[in-house]
Design a protein around this nucleic acid. Structure first.
Lengths: 137, 137
DNA sequence: ACTTGACTTAGACAAAGTCCATCGTAGGAT
DNA sequence: ATCCTACGATGGACTTTGTCTAAGTCAAGT
């Protein structure tokens, strides 16, 4: 799926070997990688790529709306390449595994104006927590 | 409200000056403080209290279910003394301010069995994001 | 092919939190 | 009231995750 690369090129993204590799890593595996995991995988293809570049590129992809940042705790942020279809996350409290889920309903609509305290609310993030089948034994 | 201190003592918590001060700081202000903010306030009453002790005590309070940890991004975790009444959070994307909110509806019910992948789902955390009035100018 | 400004790099730096060896003390035992 | 001792506190080193900077490199338009 080099749709991603095409879209980026179409937006005037200057294409470099480093950016291509980072985009391909994210596009290739639909799992939720940390920045360091992206760096590790990128290094396999482009051994000299730097950490800073991986962070910069991930940040750009997030700004462009091509990738979502998922912060479930104070550990490393994870990057979710499934940005085009809205979804929420189901996290195993024991092993940390993450699955994309698609709940019914619109949680934004559940927050009445009287509970918005003057905020301009633009987004809602729902994290379900539980025990995955593997951990439940 | 030294209900908290009473409860802790009743549970066999060994009472020290440091723990009392941390518990009082949390119990006194129903805002969402970071560990460093708790430390700063505790230091006013007990100047020699260490950071490690504040971290340890906060961790114990969380384990005991008296305080909730709120990790909204990769900034510092915040500690929420309002653990007895279920609620969700509204976060300012700019300054990080947090408000408790009470949405209508039950998000747990919005996750159909077909989207649970065999997980035993026990909890859901909803974070609304936006810009607070102060940051909006 | 040249030029230029955007991109990359290594490493220093920073924020938040954890770990550890050692010292101190709360609270039961005497 | 004093003593004991296991539990708690301390400060500093360390770790993890991420940001910043100055200097070098290169993609792409001309």
């Amino acid at each position: 799926m080099s749709d991603l690369l095409e879209r980026l090129r179409g937006r005037g993204w200057r294409m470099t070997a480093q950016r291509r590799v980072v985009a391909e890593v994210l596009d290739g595996e639909h799992v939720h990688l940390t920045a360091d995991e992206v760096h590790a995988r990128a290094t396999l293809r482009l051994p000299e790529i730097s950490r800073a570049t991986v962070y910069n590129t991930l940040g750009e992809l997030v700004s462009l709306g091509e990738v979502l940042e998922v912060a479930t705790d104070r550990r490393a942020k994870r990057y979710d390449p499934n940005a085009h279809r809205p979804h929420q996350h189901l996290v195993c409290a024991q092993c940390g595994a993450i699955r994309d889920v698609h709940p019914s309903g619109n949680p934004l609509a559940d927050l009445p104006d009287s509970e918005r305290f003057g905020f301009t609310v633009s987004d809602v993030e729902v994290t379900y927590r539980g025990i995955c089948p593997a951990c439940a034994g």
